[in-house]
Write a protein that binds this DNA or RNA. Structure first.
Length: 442
RNA sequence: GCGGCUAUGGUGAAACGGUUAUCACACCAGUUUGUGGUACUGGUAUUACGGGUUCGAUUCCCGUUAGUCGCCCCA
């Protein structure tokens, strides 16, 4: 019978194990210590600043993103993870969460809550682009949104929170800020910028020639030396701001100075989503001034989106500002900068058993030990004591409880000190007292 | 979407047209059936997938897929 099965197995075509989809990743237990560290710190700081947690659906109506992020943007045009569902609806996996948060704000009448409404979220986002370092098709963002407040003090505090969180997880970062004004002034500026760049067309790189028509603001942060030289004397967006935006930006800077946030003014900083206005900012790693950072270097980004609520059908003139942190990138940078997340606590006790009877009892007594507050582990699936002591040693337990046939008969257990190797037989009913005493002694 | 590099057990590597694909670590089982951190024994791979060249391919060629790096773009 057994040989028959074996033959059958080899004869049948070998099952091919499915792989994860492109750009998708399993986050394994070893990796989770970084994730847990980030999650914990993020949750703590969110609560400390009175943000309320919100979880939005991962799947939304495609329109939500097309209308807010912008039809022309790459995020929508080529990276949207969209499909038609069984009910013939055009849906999309969310590429970011701000649009969903604003939708939720409107849907649930949050305008009736004390303003501004402060929300935080954490979860997977999806962009269908080509994976590379620090970029996946499914990635995770932690984000904050403050909806219903226009004052620059909110922008300042949000930037402060971002910096604090990065500090909390041990990262050295710097913040770059800029203001991109309103849609109207930005349009005027674009025209001016394109006019200027046209005059220097021959000096621009190939990409920038293309950008000229498609996405002229991107000319500003091109890394090609020729373009850089041209852009040095280009008109600056700050000079095109309307008076209110200018005032807002200056106030923001005053606040940042007040709380000693070390920011860098970057007049070339722009954002890739249409809904942004006024304040925009980016958090990048600080690895010393002369280190050239790669293009996937932004750990977090954010800005004001004063028109978005109205655009999605909410009340007029509901100002808002938000930020998002790329968790994979933050973790990547933690490794880069050598940040060690706190290790898992060392187990106090390993519970070993020998024999069927002992195993039954062990299963029950394990619960007693655990309920008493000890960090206790087991390997009930293993039979030999040797294998269990090996396992105990591997997890670095301080004591091993040994329960065998003999002990079951006598109503005792053995407690072995894993460092000295000394062991003592004690009555079962004194187990917890003995363990407490021993643990306290160490 | 475009270009470079890569693809051998769970992990990291070796072999390189030619007999049972080598090693280390990890994992599992065991070394007279109840004692770990050491030693020993054994087990664990149709060399990513598909095609081609060849008497013969893990090794050469092409394609696909995936990873990786850069570009575009973005967190």
């Amino acid at each position: 019978m057994a040989t028959e099965n074996k033959e059958e197995e080899t004869a049948v075509k070998r099952v091919k194990t499915p792989e994860t989809l492109r750009g998708m990743k399993d986050i394994l237990p070893d990796e989770q210590i970084y994730w847990e560290y980030f999650r914990r710190r993020a949750r703590e700081i969110s609560e400390a600043y009175s943000f309320g947690r919100i979880d939005m659906p991962i799947l939304e109506d495609e329109k939500l993103f097309v209308r807010t992020v912008g039809k022309q943007t790459d995020i929508v045009e080529k990276e949207l993870y969209n499909f038609v569902d069984k009910g013939e609806s055009k849906v999309a996996l969310r590429p970011e969460a701000t649009a969903s948060a604003v939708r939720a704000y409107i849907n649930h009448g949050m305008l009736n809550l004390p303003q501004p409404v402060k929300l935080w979220y954490m979860g997977p986002m999806f962009r269908y682009d080509r994976p590379q370092s620090g970029r996946y098709r499914q990635f995770h963002q932690y984000g904050l949104e403050v909806i219903g407040g226009a004052d620059a003090v909110i922008d300042a505090q949000l930037i402060l929170i971002a910096i604090k969180l990065f500090e909390d997880i041990g990262l050295k970062v710097k913040v770059e800020i800029n203001s991109i004004g309103t849609a109207v002034t930005r349009q005027e500026y674009k025209i001016e910028l394109v006019a200027y760049a046209r005059k220097h067309r021959k000096e621009l790189c190939e990409d920038c020639t293309r950008r000229l028509a498609r996405n002229p603001l991107r000319l500003l942060d091109c890394k090609a030396t020729g373009c850089r030289a041209v852009m040095k004397d280009a008109p600056q967006i700050l000079d095109w701001l309307d008076d209110d935006s200018k005032q807002h930006f200056m106030t923001l800077i005053e606040y940042l100075d007040e709380i000693s946030v070390p920011y860098v003014l970057n007049p070339h900083l722009v954002r890739g989503l249409d809904y942004y206005n006024r304040t925009v900012f980016e958090v990048v790693p600080d690895r010393g001034d002369d280190v050239e950072l790669g293009s996937q270097s932004a750990l977090a980004a954010g800005g004001r989106y004063d028109g978005l609520v109205e655009q999605l059908g909410g009340r007029e003139e509901t100002a808002a500002v938000g930020l998002a942190i790329g968790i994979e990138r933050a973790i990547l940078e933690m490794k880069q900068q050598g940040v060690e997340p706190p290790p898992l606590p060392r187990p106090d006790i390993f519970f070993a058993q020998i024999g069927a009877e002992a195993r039954r009892l062990a299963l029950r007594h394990f619960e007693e030990v655990r309920a008493a507050g000890f960090n206790v582990v087991e390997a009930f699936g293993k039979a030999s004591l040797k294998a269990q002591l090996e396992a105990s040693n591997k997890v670095d337990a301080r004591f091993t409880i040994i329960l065998g046939q003999l002990e079951v008969q006598d109503g005792t257990i053995i407690v072995r000190d894993m460092e000295s190797g000394a062991q003592e037989t004690i009555p079962m009913d004194q187990m917890l007292d003995y363990l407490k005493k021993e643990m306290a002694r160490k």
